[in-house]
Design a protein around this nucleic acid. Sequence first.
DNA 1: ATGGGTCAG
DNA 2: CTTTCTGACCCAT
Length: 432
Amino acid sequence: MARPAPMRQLPQIAHVDVNCFYASAERAFNPALEGRPVVVLSNNDGCAVTRSPEAKRLGIALGEPWFKLAPRAREWGLVALSSNYELYGDISARVMELLGRFSAWLEVYSIDEAFLGVKGTPAELLELGGQMKTAVRRNVGVPVCVGIAPTKTLAKLANKWAKNNPAFDGVCHWESVPAAARERLMRSLSVIEIWGVATRLTKRLNALGIHSILDLARADPVMIRDRFSVVMMRTVLELQGTPCIPLEEERIGRDQLIFSRSFSTPLTSAAGFRQVLSVYGQQASARLSRHGLQAKLLTAFAGTSHFNARDVSFPTVSVVLPMPTADPVILTRAAHALLPRIVDGVKYAKAGIMVTDLRPTGNQAPLSPFENPHEERHIGSLVEDITRRYGRGSIGLGFGGIRGGPDWSMRRDMLSPRYTTHWDELPLVKAA
DNA sequence: ATGGGTCAG
DNA sequence: CTTTCTGACCCAT
């Protein structure tokens, strides 16, 4: 007698992401923020990049400039905070570590999102999603939603559904939802809601009569490949339930590193740039060594504000380095090649350097004519060590090491403490 | 190869 | 007064 056919348990993808991550991370350490409208601002306190649900309800848009919000903040009871990347990075690591206990098959997709490979019956998957949500909330203190589906694209869609429909209570298992309801959802949403489709592609799809997600799901994959790309074809197949985007291994090594920042006040002289480029050169050096990488090419660039119609200048220069290196002295000197291109008196709003053609630091000693005198003496790691012990700005190479001078550094007037990464900023708990 | 275009978070 | 910043990838040239 045949046993009952085992229920097919194809692997599925769980997509987990933290609700308005930056604001939630702030709340985890400052309960007074609970229930209040909170926004976290971009670099230089420029605009709102994360809004708590209460802030969204006030009609505050993503990207809204802080100078427009500030006058009404008091009236609204709005709390604005500068980006505290140290805090967010640490909270993120805790969330990911916790999720890793639910599946060894974990892809950390961004600071606040992860994909996990999971298996089980629909009931088990729903249960698992609920456990993830509860565990992260209880152990790290931030709220997450979970979407579970046969493909990454559908898992992201399920997650979004869970976020926007309280009936799911934060967890949506795609295939547990009746087909008619799924179809209704896909018919009601524009293709722009799909992962990988933004304004440009939406316009092009619309021109072909493809408006809703359902339209796209029913499109011919081959036609889509011919008119768009293999990437868009994968999206179509994934919407149809065929996995095309695998879970990725942790990316080891990068193709490029970029250091770029807008200034809190515009820079107008080559002298100021000399200092900025020195700092970037040293930061690039530190990050390269941390990743065990050396660069062969450095590009330095600067730019005026797009809001400034009078001055338009976007100088850029590329320098082939004499050898693959992470040496701060060499990188800084190369970055300084931009200086002659800086037009005096023009108001520059940002500058940056990019190192490319990266390769792992070899353990083979260079031939003597190519030896690098600074690396030889470990100046890079010495600078890093002192920076770590005495703070940024306490030491630096040449013009990068001077405290004070023109104030081009990032503006962060409303920064919360680094609750979890600095002893003197730990929160105090009082047991009454 | 590489620079422009597009997207994500 | 602003539209983050950083990184990846496709595609046309």
